[in-house]
């Protein structure tokens, strides 16, 4: 078979179909993962002791177990208690739970780094604790969490390939199918790798732009510490 025919008529169309699923997985997971991360970090840091304990336990469980295990439980395990999810839904739920737990830790680190005076000043003006967190603490903490959160987003791009293990034919899965059918492992997986590289590169550039746009004037270090 002609290389060009294989590449353009077989491999790339299959990968593009897989890519669409991968993008759907990411787009359906990332926003909720971020929201969950914020909620869990705030709950752990500022919530009632019971809520704080709940948040800590959730992060502990997710951090301590493989994502693949979580996906197996959600897809293969839950039907035995009467909850049946589609493979796509189970994947998204697993990704949100995983993404949320790691995001929560990045955000919690940023919350801790905001000086106490910010909260004190907000409360001294008559703001409630919640108003202070929302309008003063979080806007600053989220800026500081961007490098960590973008890292976690990039992980999400890559661990979305685990959906293949519960039958969702996303990018990696599509590559695997072509590879085994046409016995073209090197070409197929190299092509899959390049698509991931492109995705991650786009993310990195987007994050750089975002970081510059939300930077608070006067606080960006003009001199990188390597030059000090």
């Amino acid at each position: 078979m002609d290389q060009a025919v294989f590449l353009f008529d077989i491999l790339l169309p299959a990968l593009m179909q897989g890519l669409v699923i991968t993008l759907q997985l990411i787009a359906c997971s990332a926003p909720f993962g971020l929201a969950l991360g914020i909620a869990v970090a705030v709950g752990r840091q500022y919530g009632h002791p019971a809520i704080s304990w709940l948040c800590r336990t959730y992060v502990f469980l997710i951090k301590g177990t493989p994502l693949l295990l979580l996906l197996f439980i959600l897809y293969f395990g839950l039907p035995s208690v009467g909850i049946t999810l589609t493979a796509f839904m189970a994947s998204i739920l697993g990704f949100i739970l995983c993404n949320g737990a790691y995001n929560a830790e990045y955000i919690r680190g940023a919350l801790i780094s905001i000086k106490e005076g910010q909260m004190v000043a907000a409360r001294s003006l008559g703001m409630t604790r919640w108003q202070a967190i929302r309008s003063v603490i979080l806007p600053q903490a989220l800026r500081r969490a961007i490098p960590g959160l973008s890292n976690e987003f990039i992980y999400l791009i890559k661990y979305s390939s685990l959906a293949y293990m519960i039958t969702v034919i996303e990018l990696s899965g599509a590559g695997k199918l072509v590879a085994t059918k046409y016995f073209t492992y090197t070409e197929s997986f190299a092509a899959v790798g390049i698509v991931y590289l492109v995705l991650v590169s786009i993310t990195t550039i987007a994050v750089n732009i975002l970081e510059k746009r939300v930077a608070v004037p006067g606080t960006v270090r003009a001199t990188p510490s390597a030059q000090l």
Partner: peptide, 12 residues
Amino acid sequence: GMVFQNFFLFDH
């Protein structure tokens, strides 16, 4: 009202 030694302006 309260005014603090280290100002505590909202940095963002």
